[in-house]
Amino acid sequence: MKASAFSYARATSVANALDLLAAHGDSAKVLSGGQSLMPAMNLRLINPELLVDIGDLAELRGIVLRGDVLRIGALTRHVDLLQSPEIAAHAPLLTEAIGHVAHPAIRNRGTIGGSLAHADPASELPACMLALKATIIVRGQPGERRIAAGDFFTGIYETALSPQELLVAVEVPVARKDSTHFFHEFARRHGDYAIVGAAAQAVVRDGVFADLRIAFFAVGDRPLLAKVAARLVDVAITPVILAEASAALGEELDPQEDQQASAAMRRHLAGVLLVRGVSALLGRPDLSGAPA
C-alpha cells in the first residue's frame, strides 16, 4: 500500500506551522514521529493534502524542571522519556509506562505530542496524563490554551485540539516524596496496545491511601479516571472492601468488544488490575488473593 500523493512542508517555527494549519484547515495534518500517521496514510485510511512536518522545531523538544512542574515538549520522543533522569526522578510512572509503548524502533520516533494528539483509547500515555493530573498546552493563532488532561480526551481519536492548533507541551506536577505509583497492562504480546491497562499515582500514609488516582485505558472511548478510587481513600482496606470496589468499577466502565476481548472480559480484567494495583501500592500481597 502506498499513500496517495500529498504536499509536504517542513515548518520553520511554531508560528509558521500555525500559519500553514490556518491556511489549509482540515486538509492539513501535523507530522510528528509519523508512527501512527504514516501507517494510516499508507493504508489510505486518511488522505491529507498537506503534511506539516514539525520535526525541526527545537522549541517543542526537551524536558525541563520548573519549580514543582515538569514541562515536556511535544516533540519529546518515547525513548527520551524512557531514558530521562528527570522523568525517572519526578514522574517515575511515565518511565515505567513508556516501556510498554510499542517497540524500540517505534519509541525512537514516536513522540508524546503525537501520542496525546492521536488519542488512541488503548494508548498508555493519555491514561498516565490523567493519573498524573497533567495539563496539556496547545497553541493556535489566537494564543495558548491550557487544558486539564481530564478535559482533553473527548473520544476515540478525538481531543479538544482543533485542526488549527498545535499541541506544544505537557506539564506534569512533580511527584511528592511520599507518593507511589503503579502501572500494568494486559496485552497479548509485549509492545501491543493493551486489552486493559491501568496507571495509578497514590499517596500512602500508614498503610492507608491519602490520595489515589487510578486511570484505566482500553476500557472505553477515552482513558478513564476511576471514581471508585475515592472509596479506597482514608480507609483500612480489606479484601471485602476491595472486592466491592472492583465490582463497582465494572459498573463505571462501558468497554467495547473487539477481537481480543468481550466487554465482560474487559470489565473482569479491569477488576483484576484494580485489585493487583491496590495490593502493589499498599505493599500488601494478601490483598491480591482477593476474588477479583
Binding site: R188, R189, H190, G191
Partner: peptide
C-alpha cells in the same frame, strides 16, 4: 496489528 504473529518477547 490485529493478526498476532508470535514475537520473541
Amino acid at each position: 496489528a490485529d493478526y498476532l504473529v508470535p514475537m520473541s518477547g
